[in-house]
Amino acid sequence: MSAPERDHGTTAVGRPTLELRGVDKSFGAVQVLHDVHLTVYPGKVTALVGDNGAGKSTLIKGIAGIHPFDSGEVEFEGERVTLHSPRDAAKLGIEVVYQDLALADNLDVVQNMFLGRERKRGVLLDEQSMEVAARETLAKLSVRTLKSVRQLVSSLSGGQRQTVAIAKAVLWESKLVILDEPTAALGVAQTRQVLDLVRRLADAGHAVVFITHNMVDVFEVADRVAALYLGRVAADVPIDQVDRTQVIELITSGRSGDLGLSAEDLED
């Protein structure tokens, strides 16, 4: 890859793309997110890690405007913003690739990539220009595994579906791309492809948040690691300041050495 050498996020250049400060979220009586702080930088991959039920999906659904946060501040490129609906997020340039992918099986690749934002000429759908743009995006990401952009999504393999979902996010000149466990259901070769794709996204200047359970993936592509423990951020640090054992400790117990949550936070 021709990309510049990774600096592992130590020199966090430029202003953050997204900054969360003191974000809370409850579902009824259950508080899922507690006072969450998170900073995401352009051109960097932030791995968001945490045990099952730690609140990773809830956190990104808040950023996506699907389940808006109850309180706390959100800054996007230095500006205070509100994220109350998927449209708010989309307008800012936030694209989410969900764990369940959210593709319509009965539509083809192009139709899925433009879903909800179809190009039109008058009332007519401009199928041709959409097909051209979809192909260009896939080519830019060096995606070579799709037979045709007019294939129905139902006929694609897991890795191909993931690719389409990611390409869909990239199509929109997005500033922040969030991927919820993109490699969870994939085999070795497909995981490889998705990780390469994630790296290329960041190298192209997107800020990337990448949720995963897999330590190999984390150390392979991430510039920064943010660890969630029971809805709290245990650490949000450059990757070269932690090793594998520490990240696992942060995930399983919320602290590791002098990193992590304080004793009173761990109390409740």
Partner: peptide, 8 residues
């Protein structure tokens, strides 16, 4: 659900 998330 996909449609909803696409803003439809």
């Amino acid at each position: 659900e996909a449609a909803r998330r696409a803003g439809i």
